[in-house]
Computed example of a mutant assay.
Amino acid sequence: MKGLAGFGRKQDCVLVIRDSDVVLEALREALGEAPAEERAGLERAVAVVRGVAGADEGPLRAAWVRERLAGVGFAGDLGSVAAIKALRQAEPDLSLLAAVQLQRDAVAHPA
């Protein structure tokens, strides 16, 4: 996942941006041209990227939230008001509604 972003002023819309399809295609092309000694590693890489490409967005958003909270030193309860405050400190462009929705993803999808 590249990142989550709002546009302009604080937004209630949070986008998950992934380029795993592009990476998967590049790995498939490399696998098609790879010498025998590289094939096993590339096959494993294709399997890993395929798993990420099909992942549900909820767990991806939850992981993003945890990364942002860790970045501001938050280690408390993900379901707390303090977690929302810390998330908005980490990402000032998040609206309160977006922060609450992201918090719900983090609570619903434990690490």
Rank of each mutant, 00 (worst) to 15 (best):
E57C: 05
A75E: 15
I17K: 05
A90L: 10
A111Y: 00
G6E: 10
E67R: 14
K10H: 13
A98K: 09
D19H: 06
F7P: 03
G32E: 08
A26C: 07
E43S: 05
V107H: 02
G58I: 12
L69M: 10
R44A: 08
Q11L: 09
G76F: 02
A111F: 00
V23F: 12
V14C: 09
K10M: 15
R50V: 13
V23D: 04
G8F: 09
L31F: 00
L97E: 14
D93Y: 08
H109T: 01
E29V: 07
L102K: 08
E25G: 08
L15V: 12
A98F: 04
R39V: 00
L102P: 02
I84K: 15
F74L: 03
L27A: 07
A106N: 04
A99E: 01
D93L: 12
D56A: 12
L102G: 04
E67Q: 14
R9T: 15
G54A: 08
G41I: 00
A86M: 09
S95M: 03
A70S: 09
S20I: 01
R66I: 03
D93K: 08
K2Q: 13
V46R: 03
G8Q: 10
F74M: 05
L24W: 06
R88K: 13
A55K: 08
G8I: 03
R50M: 07
R66W: 07
D19I: 06
R68V: 12
A82T: 07
G79T: 07
D105Q: 10
A63F: 09
E33A: 09
A108K: 13
A36G: 04
L42I: 00
R50I: 10
R88P: 02
I17R: 07
R88M: 14
A106Q: 06
V107Y: 02
R66P: 00
D77A: 11
V81T: 09
A62V: 06
E25C: 06
V100N: 09
G54W: 04
R68W: 04
G51F: 02
E57V: 11
G3N: 13
R104C: 07
E37T: 02
R18C: 15
A63I: 00
R18T: 15
M1H: 03
A83D: 10
Q89V: 14
V100Q: 12
R88G: 04
L15N: 10
P59D: 13
L60Q: 11
L4C: 10
E33S: 05
F74Y: 14
R104Q: 12
R18W: 02
R39D: 00
R39Q: 02
G54V: 01
G71A: 05
R28K: 09
V49C: 06
A82L: 07
G41M: 00
P92V: 08
K2I: 15
G8L: 12
V22G: 13
V52K: 01
A30Y: 01
C13H: 12
P59T: 10
G51H: 03
H109A: 14
V65C: 13
P92I: 07
A40W: 05
L69S: 10
V72G: 03
G41D: 09
K10P: 15
A98E: 09
D93Q: 11
E57Q: 06
